[in-house]
Amino acid sequence: MAESTEHTITREEVAHLADLARIDLSDAELDHLAPQLSVILESIASIQGVAGDDVPPTSHTLPLTNVYRDDVVRPGLTAEEALSGAPEVEQQRFKVPRILGEEQ
């Protein structure tokens, strides 16, 4: 197969993917990661065409069924415990940076 060269990830694509994944990659990291990811991708692209359309996908090895339990009160974390690892707390709540843009 001579089509292996198409499985590359460009520096721009890595920057876009990092943006989607909410990671601020530095320029040096982009330079470093793009060729590494291309090498990995080229290697794993070999699975294309291995399974025909008639093969069902496996997302999980167990037959998963919804699990219900009775809706009864049981002990849980206190508010203090739940907030114990929070970077910032205010009035027994997680305090977060602004979530809206200026124009919103």
Partner: peptide, 29 residues
């Protein structure tokens, strides 16, 4: 970071069937 970006790529629309979808089928095999 490598794996998060690779995973984000594999799940992207346009690549999903070729990569993640295919991997799930090979998992069956």
């Amino acid at each position: 970071k490598r794996r998060i970006i690779l995973g984000t790529y594999a799940l992207s629309s346009g690549y999903y069937d070729a990569y993640y979808g295919q991997a799930q089928k090979v998992r069956t095999l």
